[in-house]
């Protein structure tokens, strides 16, 4: 079993944090092996960022830390979408932030698309765009069930300064609890 995840966005959208929270949850609260990589332009603010996460129950299967055939993907921004599409499986679950990505531009891909204007919702409900990443994480876990949401909440508490716990956990729960 090898599960591959690609996360992509623009610097400042919180893609790296999304990846780290997910990675830490898998590492600390499941018995899976997990590995990954971060790619971002360090010199430029607002450059593209890409996170790969590989999960497996067999250590030999996670040597290569890049997705080649992703089962799950997240795009918060369109810039890398075309480039990365060749690494995404047909029918893969792909989460799209329609605040920045035109839904019509997705027609060429044979993906199972799950889309919401995450950033807009985040601004409307929580008064900031900064927790859109946690909202997506909640949605991803609701749809894929790769980890227990309780474990994610625990990691948020372990990793973030306490003043940010509440808003991040609420935004994380938002898509999970939505009927």
């Amino acid at each position: 079993m090898r599960i591959e995840i690609i996360l992509s966005g623009r610097g400042g959208q919180g893609i790296l944090m999304l990846g780290r929270i997910l990675g830490k949850t898998l590492a600390r609260y499941t018995s899976y092996y997990v590995a990954g990589s971060e790619t971002y332009a360090t010199e430029v603010r607002g450059g593209d960022s890409r996170v790969d996460i590989i999960i497996s129950d067999n250590e030999d299967e996670i040597g290569y830390v890049r997705a080649r055939n992703a089962d799950i993907a997240v795009f918060m921004y369109p810039s890398l979408m075309k480039n990365l599409s060749r690494y995404i499986k047909r029918k893969a679950k792909v989460f799209i932030d329609t605040t920045f990505i035109d839904i019509d531009s997705l027609r060429e891909y044979d993906w199972t698309i799950i889309s919401e204007p995450y950033t807009q919702i985040s601004e409307r409900i929580f008064g900031t765009s900064r927790v859109a990443n946690m909202m997506i994480l909640g949605h991803l876990i609701k749809e894929t069930k790769i980890v227990d949401p309780e474990a994610v909440e625990r990691v948020i508490r372990e990793e973030m300064p306490s003043k940010w716990h509440d808003i991040n956990i609420r935004s994380f729960r938002y898509m999970i609890d939505r009927k």
Partner: peptide
Amino acid sequence: ASIANMFGKV
């Protein structure tokens, strides 16, 4: 540089 930004369960 790759390992610098490679993540893993440690």
